[in-house]
Nucleic acid binder design. Structure first.
Lengths: 164, 164
DNA sequence: GTAGCGGTACTCGGATACTTCCTGTCCGAGTCGTACTGG
DNA sequence: CCAGTACGACTCGGACAGGAAGTATCCGAGTACCGCTAC
């Protein structure tokens, strides 16, 4: 069960966009260059964020991406859902209703009762989602500022530079 | 982020093994036939459970798999870890240390400070793991017995039958 | 000098290859039960 | 009748294909800026 690598890129980019403010747009190529990542693939991740309404995109010169709303309103759950999709990791295929097991193997006598395994898995996954939803981009930015106060300024300086 | 389908099979099989008791071994082919699943692939999942010490395997006639310990001692976390592996879903590749970002982009000034994103992701994942670890096979079996008391007996009857 | 216009460069967005992992299958090694043979 | 032995069948275990999803890339559509030209 591996999470897409793009999630890491997306969260980092959201942090950078948060530090740069919402008054300027940053091209995908620049966000990628900051970490020496493939620009086209970074663009793909940002497109997913745009589709999810987390960032807004503008074309043409001086275009790029910027946060669609304040960092306090963007949770990790939002970003993960944008890249990974909203479906559950555990997919209950209802095998209990197949085969010689008749209609009741591990969980139910009739089709009505929910699959106990599915319920347990969902419970765990909800705990995960709840934890992700409780942390915003602003929270992470605050943590970083606390541990290394120069980080935000360093980002602003690097992106302020016109080279590459 | 999709979980392996084998997890569902493994948990269902653990439930069945729990109902059948630990005094008899059940072949992979029979566990698979119960749900009309491919026997060889089911065998693969059971092998993983065996490597993790959740079930024990015996070869030859009358052989098969049985639970290695009481269902109360087997958690969902154990099963998921056996099939999926123990590594985290979110893989921090430390992109913050690459590229023009120098050595401190989103998280740290030096290599010492932990990646804040990684920390947040891990926190969520730990919540997930904790929830999985809190539920045992016995718990699920109890839930099923509550909702459809006939399930256990039906399983015992089907597996007791020599056909297929 | 100013307004209008065309060209150019830049950006996103989706369509297209390549790699990795999950899914599914196959065959060989080992083991137990059984039947046969000999005493 | 009983013990020993050889055979056969059954099961796990790991090695081997096929397919879906993630990863990476490229090219076209659209847009804003800039310079030029005409008034």
């Amino acid at each position: 069960m591996r999470m897409n690598e793009g999630v890491e890129w997306a969260v980092h980019s959201c942090l950078n966009l948060a530090w740069l403010g919402e008054d300027r747009a940053v091209p995908a190529a620049k966000l990628a260059a900051f970490y020496e990542l493939p620009a086209a693939y970074m663009n793909k991740q940002l497109q997913a964020l745009a589709r999810a309404g987390i960032v807004t995109s503008t074309s043409g010169p001086r275009g790029g991406f910027r946060l669609a709303r304040p960092p306090e309103k963007i949770t990790l759950m939002d970003v993960v859902a944008a890249i990974e999709g909203s479906e559950e990791a555990f997919r209950c295929t209802e095998i209990r209703h197949r085969g010689g097991s008749g209609s009741g193997s591990a969980v139910s006598g009739r089709g009505d009762t929910p699959c106990a395994i599915h319920t347990s898995m969902r419970k765990a996954e909800l705990a995960w989602r709840r934890e992700l939803a409780s942390q915003s981009i602003a929270d992470i930015a605050a943590t970083v500022d606390e541990h290394s106060p120069a980080a935000a300024e360093r980002v602003r300086r690097w992106f302020g530079d016109t080279r590459t």
